[in-house]
Computed example of a mutant assay.
Amino acid sequence: MANLLSSTGVQVETITFPPHVKPPGATNTLFLGGAGVRCVEIESKLVKISGIGVYLEDKAIQSLAATWKGKGVEELQDLEDFFKDIINGPFEKFIQVTAIIPLAGKQFSKNVSAYCDRIWKAQGTYNHEDAKTIEKFNEVFKDQNFSPGSSILLTISTAGSLTISFSKDGSIQDTMVSVLENEKIGPAMIATAIGKHGVSPEAKKSVASRLSSIIN
């Protein structure tokens, strides 16, 4: 069903997110749930840093429709529980982060790590294994720099593990850089993009709009 109804990609600045991808580490082809730009404020100006595409496995539709069928986009985009069902749902997910301006891997991992720490500590679940996972995550990115058009590829398994890959030209490649088995790291990656304090409200709105159309 998702393949039929999400047959269009999304253009974010100069980045084209295709309607379907088979990301590294995934067992299935995933469909584009939505995409948007990430901005940060630099010297009182909003600067576009990257484009973020969020992809989901087809069975996400049946899982989400059970609760959210009949809801409109305006309602869904403001419902935290809707996005929690995406973040924690029992289906594969994939995030493509494509640089618009030069992006330092060390800065990217620092921001993501801080987000994960904050989530897990707020939940009261942060432990030694989580600290080791964050350390490994930071190690993967410490010597990486992403020029405009290059991408960070993050594949989340049904169990929550995270496969990390990189692409110099924005294409989806099969080369895995690292796999982190911690079941909490994958959902945290999705949450950084479209969670309660996610970095791309535009991607969040796009996900709500496209999924609303498919579910209904």
Rank of each mutant, 00 (worst) to 15 (best):
T125C: 00
T98Q: 12
M1Y: 07
S200C: 01
G9E: 07
I15Y: 06
S161V: 05
P201C: 13
S209R: 14
K184Q: 09
G186T: 10
S178E: 15
E183Y: 05
H20Q: 15
K84M: 10
A26C: 13
Y55Q: 03
S157A: 15
W68P: 02
L4S: 12
E13Q: 11
W68A: 03
N138H: 05
T27K: 14
S151H: 04
S161W: 02
E129L: 12
G149P: 07
K110E: 14
L56P: 01
E43C: 03
K184D: 05
H128M: 07
F141P: 05
V10R: 10
A60V: 04
S167R: 09
Q62C: 00
K106R: 13
T163P: 04
K204T: 15
L103G: 02
G186Y: 12
G36C: 09
A35K: 04
F31S: 09
T133R: 05
L79Q: 09
S147E: 12
R118I: 00
N111T: 14
K196Q: 14
I215T: 08
I95W: 04
V73K: 11
Q96F: 02
S178L: 07
E129Q: 13
L30V: 08
G170A: 08
H128F: 11
G51T: 05
I15T: 14
I101S: 05
V47L: 12
Q96N: 08
L153G: 01
